[in-house]
Design a protein around this nucleic acid. Structure first.
Lengths: 193, 193
DNA sequence: AGCAAATAGTGACCATGGTCAATTTAAAAG
DNA sequence: CTTTTAAATTGACCATGGTCACTATTTGCT
């Protein structure tokens, strides 16, 4: 027989998340230790793993929540008229995703859902992202020879590429958006003869 | 005063790599344990870390070597005339990179060099890959409105995307190459009106 | 209320990657 | 050949994520 989740459960979970968020705000994602989280939340270590499969599951949730926040912002924007506007729209999100190498690694690892039924927070945001960009591209002045869905996947692929290159010392910080703009210009507005 | 590397050093390193390769061949990359490697190589644990910064550095080397092998093959091929040929050429490499999720994660994490001077084996192979594809695209019948270098970066971005989606249960195994073909058709031969 | 079943929480314990002061070995100097 | 010095090796030790048998609590039933 199945029972409803107890209030206690929600509280504990909330305390764990709150503790983790505080610690992250203080020292960043990479420095987060499960030990510190449970200490701050006032629960035993085992409890943590009763709520999260592993440390990454917590990260998935924390980071996914942040990404969702950025997507909320993005959704309020009008459809971009050109590549520059598109890049400007998603720049804050990209900045967050590359705020730490560790964060970017986690985002990458979770961007594709591991299993169909087990779509995590970050994987969901990628779906949302695709949705938003598809919508933008559907009624735009960008190329029309391929579907908006495919176009959006391409935007995602190039965004990831631009972020990945951001971590090479060769390519300096502010080049990330320039690089993306160059990619998207070629992707969304090919000038083939 | 600096001294030349001792023969002993090379031998030890070779034994470590050989032991690791055997173990990987037997149980795969993810199951590799440092403990087992040093046991098989007949050295102490500390010795391992005197030769490799961490376990990932070993993985970088092992996987990088394999990728180089695939690139050797690829380089013997004639420049592909169309997208299908291009995809067919790089398919074996993609298959290897996605043979384990763990392998793909490592490849991703190392594909961009961490520091300019610290370009690891995998990062080098990505440079080589770009080189090869650029060469192919330079004198081809694909689009010419953007540089071969940029085109090659796009091929890389789409390859990564296709491989990443490969791990979603939604997209079945043999769809990886189809997906890539679709991307590259749109990327390399845009039919904009 | 009192009991039974399901759920939540605990903390000692384990697995494994990684460190480092001490030791051994090889090469150069005298 | 001895001494000196740099390099290589060692293994006890640590850090940290993760497990699990056991205890505690809540919920539903009679």
């Amino acid at each position: 027989m199945k029972r409803a989740v107890q209030k206690r459960t929600l509280e504990t979970r909330a305390r764990l998340v709150a503790a983790a968020e505080t610690l992250v705000a203080d020292k960043g994602y990479e420095a987060l230790r499960v030990e510190e989280v449970v200490l701050k939340a006032g629960v035993a270590k085992g409890t943590f793993f009763a709520h999260f499969r592993d440390k990454e599951a917590l990260m998935d949730q924390l980071i996914g929540a942040r990404i969702d926040g950025f997507l909320d912002e993005i959704e309020t924007l009008p459809p971009p008229r050109d590549v520059a506007a598109l890049v400007a729209a998603i720049e804050p999100l990209m900045r967050f995703m590359t705020c730490e190498r560790y964060v970017f690694d986690i985002v990458l690892r979770h961007s594709g859902a591991a299993l169909t039924e087990e779509i995590g927070p970050i994987a969901s945001t990628f779906g949302r992202y695709d949705q938003v960009v598809s919508g933008w591209l559907a009624g735009s002045s960008f190329r029309r020879d391929v579907s908006p869905g495919l176009l959006a996947e391409g935007v995602q692929a190039f965004s990831v590429q631009a972020m990945a290159l951001h971590f090479c010392a060769l390519h300096s910080d502010r080049n990330m958006t320039h690089r993306l703009a160059e990619y998207l210009e070629a992707w969304l507005m090919p000038k083939t003869t």
